[in-house]
Structures are given as structure tokens and as C-alpha cells.
């Protein structure tokens, strides 16, 4: 175990973590505004990645246009999902809402495999330069750095949006109390639609980034499952929490995997480590680092 290896683990953990952050951000936006637990978050990322692939590689659209079209597609998709599937579910028990998003995720997953198949597809031409750069003696591919920077920009933009823009403030008001928000002239229905749209766009961009680094295949939706450790760690309704939670989970996952491999000769820890962390957090601090503690009164 060298310092270099350790640094490598930390860096790749942070990069994957930044994608987790983006997906977790999407999840938190929906949860905060509409109290819907979206089990289809990973599928939104997957659809974004595949749609961008279709425009970029199959239709030979330049990258900026492909990205724009992907964003528009994600918006329309999210709007339709909210309107047709989630709107009728308002007021239903939480288990029904969980199931409806699970059902939705199955539909989206199989649509994607029906259209594009199971093989790994690679973005051509590559968006980011391919050659390595050396930081502190560790060679890192430039894609990683770009991916990290872009997702951090994404997070910063949306934090600012929530803090300063009128729509962002309206969304926070709705999250705080729907009835009061409505009586203040905020259309709660519009906010619900808006939060789905934003969430899908964020996840879709995350998908495009992943597509640029690793290529895409039909198991991309796994990113959606890592959202739970990330958001629980950060606090389910905190944007900052989602960003930090994603980074920390990515880091811990990679470090525990690397350490177990070299010291305990145990492989595959990566798949389970986030969930072990999740259970531990739920036991000791269920509302996470920045989450609002729910107080119940009779």
C-alpha cells in the first residue's frame, strides 16, 4: 500500500462521488418539494445518458446541441411522469408512492434495453481530452477532473438557484408548508412539475458525464441505488447534504474497497460498503448531517 495508491483511491472515489452527488441532488429536489421518494432516479440518469448517446453518436449532432437536446428531452419526460403518474398519487400512502416509482423504473429500464440493447456503448467523439495529467505525483486522466469540476458547478448553480431565484424560494416555501405556500399565491402544482423537471435535468447531465468517462450500459441505473446512502448521510431534505453525502459515500466506498482488497484479500466490498454505512447512519443519526428532524405531536 503506497501513498500513491491511496491518493488514486481518494481521487477516483471523489469523482464517482461527484456523480452520486448530482443524482442525490435530483433525488433531494423531488423529495423536498413533493415528499415523493423517487426510486427511478437512476433511470433518469440512464435515460439522459442514452438519449445523449443517440443524438451524439447515432445522429452525429455536435456535443453542445446534443447536450441541449438531452436537457429538453429530460424536461419533457419528467413533466409527463409528474403529470400522468405522480399527480394521481397525491395523498396515497408512502408504500404506494414507493411502488409506483419502482414500477416506473422497471418500465424505463426495459424501454432503454429494448431500444439500445445491453452492450456497452462509448461516446464518440470524446468530449474531454484523453491524456493524463500528473497531480502530486499521481497520474489522473483529465476526464476525471472535468467531470468533477462540472458536477461541482452543477451543484453550485442549483444551490444558488434555491437560495436566490424566485422559483427557488417558492420551492423552498412549498417544501416547508404546502398550504401556507398555496395561500401565498404559489401554485403548488407548478412547483411539483418544476421540481421533477429540474431533478431530471440534473440526473440527465450526470448521465452524460458518466457516459463520457466510462461509456454506458444497461446497468447504469445502479447509480440510483447509491442515492439512498448518500442522501441519508447528508439528510434527506438538504441540498448541501446531498452534495456532501454523495462525495463522502463515493470516497468511503472506494477506500473501503481498496483497503479490504489489499489487507483482507476480500474483493467486491464496493457493492456492499455504502449500504453498511447506510445502516450505521440510520442507527445512530437517522436524520443525517443536515436533515430536518421530524417532530411528531399527538
Amino acid at each position: 500500500m503506497t501513498t500513491q495508491y491511496l491518493l488514486q483511491l481518494v481521487i477516483s472515489g471523489l469523482v464517482i462521488g461527484s456523480i452520486y452527488s448530482a443524482v442525490a441532488l435530483g433525488f433531494v429536489i423531488i423529495y423536498k418539494a413533493t415528499r415523493v421518494v423517487n426510486f427511478a432516479q437512476g433511470e433518469l440518469l440512464m435515460v439522459g445518458a442514452y438519449v445523449c448517446f443517440a443524438f451524439l453518436v447515432q445522429m452525429h449532432v455536435p456535443f453542445w446541441a446534443a447536450l441541449l437536446l438531452t436537457v429538453v428531452f429530460s424536461m419533457v419526460l419528467a413533466f409527463l411522469i409528474e403529470r400522468l403518474i405522480l399527480r394521481p398519487m397525491i395523498g396515497e400512502p408512502i408504500i404506494s408512492i414507493i411502488m409506483v416509482t419502482i414500477g416506473l423504473s422497471l418500465v424505463m429500464r426495459s424501454l432503454v434495453t429494448a431500444i439500445w440493447g445491453n452492450d456497452i456503448l462509448v461516446y464518440e467523439p470524446k468530449l474531454f481530452p484523453q491524456d493524463m495529467v500528473t497531480i502530486a505525483g499521481v497520474p489522473i486522466s483529465q476526464e476525471f477532473i472535468w467531470c468533477f469540476i462540472l458536477s461541482m458547478i452543477l451543484l453550485a448553480v442549483f444551490s444558488a438557484f434555491f437560495k436566490f431565484s424566485k422559483a427557488g424560494v417558492a420551492m423552498r416555501a412549498t417544501a416547508f408548508n404546502q398550504q401556507v405556500a398555496q395561500s401565498m399565491g404559489i401554485s403548488v402544482k407548478h412547483i411539483f412539475a418544476l421540481s421533477w423537471v429540474i431533478s431530471a435535468v440534473v440526473s440527465g447531465i450526470g448521465g452524460v458525464l458518466i457516459g463520457n468517462i466510462n461509456g454506458i450500459n444497461s446497468s447504469l441505473y445502479h447509480f440510483g441505488l447509491k442515492v439512498f446512502p448518500a442522501t441519508i448521510l447528508g439528510g434527506l431534505d438538504s441540498i448541501l447534504g446531498a452534495a456532501l453525502g454523495g462525495l463522502i459515500i463515493g470516497l468511503l466506498e472506494n477506500l473501503s474497497d481498496g483497503l479490504c482488497k489489499s489487507y483482507l484479500n476480500l474483493s467486491g466490498v464496493k457493492e456492499v460498503a455504502p449500504y453498511v454505512i447506510l445502516v450505521i447512519i440510520l442507527m445512530i443519526k437517522p436524520y443525517g448531517l443536515f436533515g430536518t428532524k421530524e417532530i411528531e405531536r399527538v
Binding site: 403518474i85 411502488m99 409506483v100 429500464r109
Partner: peptide, 11 residues
């Protein structure tokens, strides 16, 4: 699309 039909029925 079998999984998809299954999901659709749930929804």
C-alpha cells in the same frame, strides 16, 4: 419488455 409490462401493471 417483459419487466416493463410488469412495471406498467404495478403503476
Amino acid at each position: 419488455f417483459e419487466q416493463g409490462v410488469f412495471g406498467l401493471i404495478i403503476v
